[in-house]
Amino acid sequence: MGVIFYLLAALTLAGGLAAVLLKNTVHCALALTVAFAGLALLFLRLDAQFAGFAQILVYVGAVAILVVFAILLTRGSETPTEGVFSRSWFVGLVIAAAVFAALGAAIVESAPALPGETAAPSVTVLGIGDALVTRYVLPLEIVALLFTAAIIGAVIVAMREKERAK
């Protein structure tokens, strides 16, 4: 383990906590970015270099920007007057706590049986690319199909607005 792991874990969890607790919606989105960046660093720590960079590119570069765009387009950047938590917040908190208790108990219980420190696997980008077009070619094609569907969906949503404006 080591100090770096604890620092990164604290950074990630602090970002995540801030993202769900802060009042201002834009601050939440920025805190979310901190959590994403912390996770990317954790991926790097786990020797998953490619996944870490992909995480930064996709989440910090795209998803976080999408979120702030959505916040600005829905006038969400002003702090709401009537509280930020929903009426049923207590139930939600209990459910989340219960889920964490169950997961945590399972992990603590099975901790002695988990495998210990192993040598870092050598993963090259070439190997990843090779695997993507051989063993994982079907999921790759399905993801491509999903993206096409998402793009068409986005265009249709935008086009319908235009027709209404006419």
Binding site: V26, I56, V60
Partner: peptide
């Protein structure tokens, strides 16, 4: 000499957008 150097470059380049948003907002 990163194995995924180009990806790293674009990942860092994408992070600048966030700074632009932070400044403007």
């Amino acid at each position: 000499n990163l194995d995924a150097g180009l990806l790293f470059f674009f990942a860092m380049g994408a992070s600048t957008e966030l700074a632009v948003f932070m400044a403007g907002w």
